[in-house]
Computed example of a mutant assay.
Amino acid sequence: MKIQVNTDSNVSGNDGRAHEVEATLERILARFEDQITRVEVHLSDENSASKSGPPDKRCLLEVRLAGRQPVSASELAQSVDQAVTGAAHKMVRALERGLGKLGGH
Rank of each mutant, 00 (worst) to 15 (best):
H105D: 09
A87E: 01
Q35C: 04
A87I: 00
A77Q: 03
E46D: 12
A83W: 06
K2W: 00
G103P: 10
A94N: 12
L43S: 03
Q82S: 11
L61S: 02
G16T: 14
G98T: 11
G98V: 06
P55F: 00
A87L: 01
R93L: 12
A73F: 00
M1S: 09
A73N: 01
L95P: 01
G98W: 05
T7E: 05
E75T: 09
T85V: 12
F32Y: 14
R31S: 05
L43Y: 04
H89K: 08
A23M: 13
K57L: 04
L61C: 02
R68I: 00
V80M: 11
P55N: 08
Q82M: 14
L76Q: 07
P70V: 06
R31C: 04
R17T: 15
K57E: 04
H89N: 11
S72R: 09
R68T: 00
G86F: 05
R64S: 15
Q69G: 00
N10C: 11
S72Y: 08
E22A: 12
G67Q: 10
R68Q: 09
R97Q: 11
H19I: 13
E40C: 08
G16H: 15
L102M: 15
E26N: 11
S74V: 00
A49Y: 12
E33N: 12
G53Y: 12
E26P: 05
L29K: 08
K90T: 02
V11R: 09
G86S: 07
S74M: 07
Q35S: 09
V63A: 12
D15W: 10
L25I: 00
G100N: 15
D56L: 01
N14V: 11
G53R: 09
G16N: 15
G53P: 11
R27F: 07
R58C: 07
Q82Y: 07
D56C: 01
D56G: 10
A94M: 08
F32E: 10
Q82R: 14
H105W: 14
P70Y: 14
R31W: 05
L95I: 08
L25Y: 03
N47V: 03
A18L: 01
R58K: 13
K2M: 03
H42Y: 08
T85Q: 13
V84R: 03
S12D: 15
K57I: 07
K90V: 00
E20P: 06
I3N: 11
R97M: 13
D15V: 13
K51E: 08
N47H: 04
A49T: 10
I3V: 14
D81M: 01
R27M: 01
S72H: 08
R17N: 13
P55H: 02
A66W: 05
S44C: 00
S9V: 11
Q69P: 04
S44T: 02
A49Q: 10
L43T: 05
S79E: 08
G104V: 13
S44W: 01
L102C: 10
M91F: 02
A73R: 06
R64T: 14
G103I: 14
P54W: 00
D81N: 05
A30N: 10
A18N: 13
V80H: 03
I3T: 07
V39H: 03
R64V: 09
G13S: 06
V71K: 11
D34H: 09
H19E: 15
D45Q: 06
T7Q: 07
A77M: 02
L76I: 03
E62Q: 15
G100A: 14
E33Y: 07
V71F: 13
V80C: 04
V80T: 10
D81V: 00
G104A: 15
A94L: 11
V92M: 07
A94T: 12
